[in-house]
Nucleic acid binder design. Structure first.
Lengths: 227, 227
DNA sequence: GAGTGGTCTAGACCACCTC
DNA sequence: AGGTGGTCTAGACCACTCT
């Protein structure tokens, strides 16, 4: 009954027990395969998993060592906002506060790699959980590459429409803390300057930017992870 | 020249091209292996990777489908604070502001699973980047399970000593935004109530809590990820 | 140059889940 | 009950990088 997860557990045990101290080398895959009586591929699977979570550092020829200063890798789930609210047992609704077609501010245009004069669809939305303000969303959409016809974003969340109708995208995410602007304060019902948790996302198709989203969450919002 | 990464790329291309739409089934591993002319294990590796990043959903017997509402999985690197500062080309230093042995506040004690009357080592530290305040750290250490002798934490960062001398640990991480307390404001040189980015970490050995850390970062701090 | 991890193969058995 | 993904094996070749 020796699977790769058993081997991973045993390796972790030895690291915790300091049989294999931080910064030290551990035996080769082949040695471990012999010791545990499994194929090398099974050991490889276990060690590879520990390397992707930052516990081990592996290099060809150099071998495998226990990470001295482990860069912990944490995995976060970034769910669709409706699911996030429903997972709390609350009901999700939203209001489109503003919709227009205009040139984005320079910082956003440059981050999307767009020249001056390029217009984007702008959407400002308030997300509500059980009718109470949950997050303020500002979104810039590259309408040129969106499939037609465009839906009525007052009736359908832009996020979910994109997920269902636009190709799977890659992108990056950033978290920060910012003081609430007067507008955000008014919309979210907090004091101006109150600490907001801000999530910024940029998404792309293979070649073109699709959307930039900024989500500002009110007090009490947490992003949590299990390591 | 067909490796599992090529297959992952081709599968992603088909999803992006909507050959395989969101929520739809894709062929079985065996079919794809035949089509691509590789072993099933190679296809499995590619699809497994896409499943862990949230693009695909897989179930035995049910098969593999394109995620309809993709819960994006983002991976964050949580480096040791010294490395984080040095990676910006700045130099790291720190000052221990306070050190004592006392009972923690109830919320922290309960989160660590400790009964009343249990005393912990308390450390309050200011981290500096190029001499300027970078982050304010509050740390509670379970001194009972620490190896002896304890070092002089004024000379050696508690974090790095722990990494080097205590068993590799598991734990969880949470991010939030909070207004600066008067003390944090004074120490970090910001206005009281200013938005701080807060990272809270709890770490454990197999059985016992080791430490609770709260890091408050000043304005401008971002946590970024590549998806 | 040589040793190490990275990957692939072809086949097999199993656990699980839908039918 | 049967089909699907999850995993393991034994062997092989390759890429990288340290010496």
């Amino acid at each position: 009954m020796t699977g790769w997860e058993d081997i991973r557990a045993e390796v972790l045990r030895r690291i915790r027990a300091r049989d294999w101290p931080p910064g030290g080398m551990i035996p080769t895959e082949e040695d471990l395969a012999v010791e545990f009586g499994v194929a090398r591929a099974t050991v490889n699977r276990a060690l590879r998993d520990l390397a992707t979570s930052g516990v081990l550092e592996r290099r060809r020829k150099a071998g495998t060592r226990v990470a001295a200063l482990p860069v912990r890798k944490a995995t976060l789930d970034i769910p669709v906002i409706r699911l996030e609210i429903e997972a709390r047992g609350q009901s999700h609704s939203f209001q489109v506060l503003k919709q227009s077609f205009m040139e984005p501010p320079v910082p956003i245009a440059s981050r999307l790699g767009l020249g001056p004069g390029f217009k984007l669809l702008y959407l400002e939305t308030l997300h509500l959980a059980d009718g109470k303000p949950f997050a303020h969303e500002v979104r810039w959409l590259n309408s040129e590459i969106l499939p037609r016809p465009l839906p009525d974003f007052h009736a359908l969340s832009a996020n979910e429409w994109l997920v269902a109708h636009v190709a799977y995208v890659s992108g990056d995410i950033a978290f920060s803390a910012e003081g609430a602007s007067p507008r955000e304060a008014a919309v979210l019902g907090v004091a101006p300057g109150a600490a907001l948790f801000v999530t910024e996302r940029m998404t792309w198709t293979a070649e073109s930017p699709i959307t930039f989203v900024r989500l500002a969450h009110g007090p009490g919002y947490r992003v949590q992870t299990l390591v």
